[in-house]
Design a protein around this nucleic acid. Structure first.
Lengths: 259, 259
DNA sequence: CAACAAAATTGATCTCAATCATTACCTTGG
DNA sequence: CCAAGGTAATGATTGAGATCAATTTTGTTG
């Protein structure tokens, strides 16, 4: 396709994440509908309430999604990462339901909502990818609902910190913390002060170690045990009491243990 | 297609919601992959942790989606209604991430996960529908996140009651309340007692009137004003102070008012 | 570097909702 | 009829986290 004005391999991430297994011809056709953009840190991609003309695929970087009640109370819905889709929530509505602000430099592909329909109707592989991405985001959102509905402040901060750990491999790895205390509070449904206190407590117990804008997790095991995802299991006399929800995890553990 | 063993118009909702504009031939082909099922009230469709072999489309009825932490704390994620999809969150994983229990008699179509991929790859119209449905569910989930993160107990109960109102038309209409106090609490991130107190308070103020399993909203305006979605607006001297998030709603209100 | 502003920490107090406990109110079945 | 068990309402008390306030730390700018 000679009218294709983009090199095939220029947009690796985009291609890898959205168009695996498509012919180069098809990719090119789609490419012409896509607009690539880069946002710098703290730049706002779009505002809650704006007319949602474009939908976005995040190729690299991290984006903060915020919504608020009319009286000004703010909630961070999630931190979008590479591979996620932005703005699809407004597919049937007309307006963005949240504000999207880049935390790091962010590379996106944006597409007009009409063009999107054309693309997904013509490219089954793309629609499968979109469905998978949306399903995963829905699952993640539902886990957030669970956490906000059930967890204590300590558990919320603990699970948040764990969610920052890249591969759950080695402990003691320093990593960057892009959010301020206020933003952490806005994510976790707490106040700035509470987050600060919990973090200070963690540091005092030598579970974490925090410098400016970065963080080192010294004791991920403790965090896991106090993040609410720990197994509910009690030993009373010669009885082992465990919650039904834990049964499966226990089975695996027990099999390993007694092998 | 003679091998089609179902009448075309037997499954109106299913067709209407998932397959608009498809040829009857295509619909028939898809139909053979679909399994229709009916669940009675309190029957469990699937359990959290079960292998997710099937995905569901809810055609009629109401289904409660519950998840829990390993120590037994429970959270209702949402009440699924006709037109919504169930189990898609497990599309890339292997297990259901929540338990689905019918509240009313529930009519569903279920489909094997492999067959689903075939269907959406062959039928662009279906995938568009699925994408729209998932987007809407994601938007709804994000609104729930906002509510759990920000709202007070009164605001939570008020918005929950409003969400039960069918068409926001006339007030004073009696409707059925399918959830117990405990279940309302599990939805709203509160305790049974708190919900009971707030409801009693509403009844005392003559905002609602509640019998067993049913409910009459006497003053929807009050509920709206106290559900957290009310406009943030204060008048100080000759100044009108309003939050940026309210600006748009205010503009519309003001235009009407001064016309 | 001083001077200022913003972010973070820490302390004191308060409040809303959780917790604990009791009673009332149903429904169902013997 | 009462006994039993489950749901709801209500009271008394506690407690986790919010709020208010002060201080320290960090970052920014002339």
């Amino acid at each position: 396709m000679s009218s294709c004005d983009c090199e095939l391999n220029a947009c690796v991430l985009c291609e890898a994440r959205l168009y695996p297994g498509l012919s180069s011809e098809l990719v090119c056709r789609i490419r012409n509908l896509l607009i690539r953009e880069t946002y710098s840190p703290h730049q706002t991609m779009f505002w809650e309430g704006d007319t949602a003309d474009f939908l976005f695929a995040l190729k690299a970087g991290q984006v903060k999604l915020t919504t608020s009640l009319p009286d000004g109370r703010q909630q961070i819905l999630r931190l979008a990462i590479a591979g996620q889709l932005l703005g699809f929530e407004s597919l049937s509505g007309r307006k963005y339901s949240y504000t999207a602000e880049a935390l790091t430099e962010a590379h996106v592909c944006k597409i007009n909502r009409r063009d999107l329909f054309e693309v997904i109707q013509q490219n089954p592989a793309v629609s499968v990818r979109v469905i998978e991405a949306l399903s995963q985001e829905l699952e993640q959102a539902e886990m957030t609902i669970r956490d906000l509905g059930l967890k204590s402040s300590t558990e919320r901060v603990a699970s948040f910190l764990l969610s920052l750990m890249p591969g759950c491999d080695g402990p003691k790895k320093t990593m960057s913390l892009l959010l301020s205390r206020r933003e952490m509070a806005e994510m976790l449904g707490l106040t700035e002060e509470t987050v600060s206190r919990v973090m200070a407590d963690f540091a005092r117990r030598e579970i974490i170690e925090n410098g400016k804008g970065c963080l080192r997790i010294l004791n991920p095991g403790w965090l896991r045990a106090h993040s609410g995802i720990a197994n509910g299991l009690a030993i009373v006399g010669s009885w082992i009491i465990l919650h039904a929800a834990t049964l499966d995890a226990f089975r695996i553990w027990a099999t390993d243990f007694f092998a």
